[in-house]
Amino acid sequence: MGSNCDYTKAVFDHFQNPRNMGEIEDADGVGTVGNPSCGDVLKVMLKVDGDKISDVKFQTFGCAAAIASSSMMTTLVKGKKISEAKKITNKDVAAALGQLPPIKVHCSNLAADALQKAIGDLK
């Protein structure tokens, strides 16, 4: 059995119609995680306005779960306070997607990791 049979509707939805995909030219914070040799690289770009995340965009090289996690993560942080975004973990991303097959959990880790790295990069 392939692992992808276990993808939820939310995973498919965010994979087929990714939200906030693209680049922010003048981003205030950028976080890149992953490794091309492992088959996944995530880049998250943030734009802040005061203490709020006014815009977020992502670019992902990875499987469907990685793309869906990236997309879902951006919807979780957009418009949030930076202090709130700091608390977002991979569990939140996975939960928002319904559930991920066990071997695909690391894909949601990457999304949260990239976000936290981008927050850490804020001036």
């Binding site: 498919f12 994979f15 087929q16 996944d40 090289f61 990875g62 499987c63 469907a64 990685a66 793309i67």
Partner: peptide, 11 residues
């Protein structure tokens, strides 16, 4: 180049 096979397969 630059994309992942599983994603392509599912699309």
């Amino acid at each position: 180049y630059g994309i992942e096979g599983e994603s392509l397969m599912l699309m």
